[in-house]
Amino acid sequence: MDDLPVRVASFVTDRVIPAEPVLLGSGADAAQTMATLQCAARAAGLWALPCSSASAARAST
């Protein structure tokens, strides 16, 4: 789990940011792009991540 921040950053950089123009729109293209990103995040083990109290405390600072 130590590489989690790196994996999340890579996913956001490689997948989410390039999809932003489509996601900012509406309609079927945006919905399909979101569904594709959700499936990719699940496949990469980045969906519904557990949040420990230690990581929550770090995130709030």
Score class of each variant (00 low, 15 high):
residue 35 A to N: 15
residue 19 A to F: 15
residue 5 P to Q: 06
residue 58 R to L: 01
residue 7 R to H: 06
residue 40 A to V: 05
residue 44 A to Q: 10
residue 26 S to A: 13
residue 43 A to Q: 15
residue 13 T to K: 15
residue 6 V to G: 12
residue 7 R to W: 04
residue 40 A to Y: 00
residue 26 S to D: 11
residue 12 V to M: 08
residue 24 L to S: 12
residue 61 T to N: 05
residue 35 A to E: 13
residue 25 G to D: 09
residue 20 E to V: 15
residue 32 Q to F: 00
residue 8 V to S: 05
residue 10 S to Q: 15
residue 48 A to R: 12
residue 24 L to M: 08
residue 54 A to T: 02
residue 9 A to S: 15
residue 3 D to K: 14
residue 39 C to E: 14
residue 50 P to V: 02
residue 5 P to I: 02
residue 27 G to V: 07
residue 42 R to M: 07
residue 5 P to S: 07
residue 39 C to Q: 12
residue 53 S to L: 03
residue 3 D to Q: 15
residue 18 P to W: 01
residue 26 S to W: 08
residue 30 A to Q: 07
residue 8 V to N: 04
residue 37 L to C: 09
residue 12 V to T: 14
residue 50 P to G: 02
residue 42 R to I: 05
residue 8 V to A: 06
residue 23 L to M: 12
residue 51 C to R: 15
residue 43 A to D: 10
residue 5 P to Y: 09
residue 28 A to C: 12
residue 23 L to A: 10
residue 19 A to L: 11
residue 33 T to H: 03
residue 40 A to E: 11
residue 27 G to E: 06
residue 14 D to C: 10
residue 41 A to Q: 01
residue 19 A to Q: 07
residue 44 A to I: 03
residue 11 F to T: 04
residue 1 M to L: 01
residue 33 T to E: 13
residue 16 V to K: 07
residue 21 P to V: 03
residue 34 M to Q: 15
residue 11 F to E: 04
residue 49 L to A: 04
residue 17 I to Q: 12
residue 17 I to S: 11
residue 5 P to C: 07
residue 56 A to W: 00
residue 9 A to P: 05
residue 33 T to Y: 01
residue 32 Q to T: 00
residue 48 A to D: 05
residue 60 S to G: 06
residue 46 L to W: 08
residue 42 R to F: 09
residue 38 Q to G: 00
residue 53 S to T: 06
residue 31 A to T: 13
residue 31 A to F: 11
residue 52 S to R: 08
residue 37 L to T: 14
residue 61 T to G: 09
residue 41 A to F: 02
residue 1 M to Y: 02
residue 26 S to E: 13
residue 15 R to K: 14
residue 56 A to S: 07
residue 23 L to Y: 08
residue 29 D to P: 00
residue 29 D to S: 12
residue 19 A to S: 15
residue 11 F to Y: 07
residue 61 T to I: 01
residue 14 D to H: 15
residue 39 C to P: 00
residue 6 V to C: 10
residue 10 S to Y: 02
residue 51 C to M: 11
residue 48 A to L: 06
residue 46 L to Q: 04
residue 54 A to P: 03
residue 2 D to T: 10
residue 29 D to Y: 00
residue 1 M to P: 07
residue 46 L to D: 02
residue 11 F to S: 07
residue 9 A to M: 06
residue 13 T to G: 10
residue 47 W to P: 05
residue 2 D to N: 12
residue 23 L to H: 11
residue 15 R to C: 09
residue 14 D to I: 11
residue 48 A to H: 04
residue 55 S to N: 08
residue 7 R to D: 02
residue 53 S to K: 06
residue 51 C to N: 08
residue 50 P to C: 01
residue 44 A to S: 14
residue 13 T to W: 08
residue 28 A to D: 13
residue 52 S to D: 02
residue 35 A to Y: 05
residue 37 L to Q: 11
residue 27 G to S: 10
residue 29 D to T: 09
